[in-house]
Computed example of a mutant assay.
Amino acid sequence: MSYCKEDGKDQVIFATKEDMGEPSKAIINIQEDPEDEQPGLILPNGDINWECPCLGGMATGPCGVQFREAFSCFHYSTAEPKGSDCYEAFLTMQECMSNYPELYPASKGPSSGDSPELSELAASKDESFGLDAGDVRDAKAEAEPTRAQS
Rank of each mutant, 00 (worst) to 15 (best):
C96Q: 07
S77N: 02
L91V: 13
S98G: 05
W50D: 00
E117A: 08
G56N: 04
P81K: 01
T78K: 07
T92K: 15
E80Q: 12
D10W: 12
E142D: 14
D126L: 08
C96E: 01
M93D: 07
K17M: 11
P110S: 11
K108C: 08
L118K: 04
R137I: 14
K9C: 09
V12S: 03
Q149G: 15
S107R: 14
E22S: 11
Q149W: 09
S111T: 15
E32N: 14
D36S: 15
I42Q: 01
L55T: 05
S150V: 02
Y3V: 00
A122P: 05
E35D: 10
M20H: 01
Y3C: 04
L121Y: 07
A139L: 07
S84E: 05
P105V: 03
L41M: 12
S84D: 07
P145F: 06
S72F: 00
C52D: 15
A122L: 15
L103I: 14
I13C: 11
A148M: 13
F90P: 08
M58Y: 10
A15C: 10
D114P: 01
K5C: 07
S150D: 10
A79P: 04
D19C: 05
I30K: 10
T78A: 03
F14S: 02
P34F: 05
K125L: 14
L43V: 10
E18Y: 00
E95R: 12
E95P: 00
K140S: 13
P23K: 09
E120V: 12
S111M: 07
E32R: 09
Q11G: 10
E88L: 07
M20G: 09
G56V: 01
M1N: 12
E80D: 13
P23T: 04
A15L: 10
